[in-house]
Design a protein around this nucleic acid. Sequence first.
DNA 1: CTTGAGATGGCCT
DNA 2: GGCCATCTCAAGC
Length: 202
Amino acid sequence: MDYINQSTEEIAQVLLGKKLIHKTPVHTYSGYIVETEAYVGIEDMACHSYAGRRTPRLESMYKSGGTIYIYTMHTHHMLNIVTKEEGNPQAVLIRAIEPFEGIEEMEKNRQANGVNVCNGPGKLTKAMEITKALNGILINEESLRIVDGKVPSQIIESPRIGIPNKEEWTLKPLRYYVKGHPCVSGMKKGEMLSAADYWHYG
DNA sequence: CTTGAGATGGCCT
DNA sequence: GGCCATCTCAAGC
């Protein structure tokens, strides 16, 4: 997986269907990525690094593509993968996964069942016990990995979630998700498809 | 099932 | 002191 020589928008789409794995000393958690958002750097008014802003919290974003960037928001941890070369602060936010391994433990961590376990950025990090301890290290180097998984039948683009008052950036279609997948945040019942229809080859 | 308001805490100015 | 890349729950349809 190349996190440098593709645009952040391309990487956000390629990540859909990939398998996210987190191993703790006690448990192994994994799931397939079903929803992402691209944050494209210093021109992007919704991006933390907009206008070249650089603070200790953002330092990971300025590292090389493939670095893990985690920050907290209202007590929730947000998982991002940095893209592009060092010094070019762009990233992809992982917003939702389809749980695969460690499902019982995830349900216990979240005190929820079914699609409600991982259908939001703060939910999946809590379910998988992902914390800021991973901030700044490279993906696939330690306990957090991303490997090949499934292939979406169809990818839908939409505006990003929770980005008001950012002029044209509010409506830019930089959010991507697997069409009809029930684990996508805010998915309505009427838009859901069956597994054979949202993953290629079932 | 869908919608909206309120609760959160860390980070920046 | 203000600003959020959110979540949950209660009320309405």
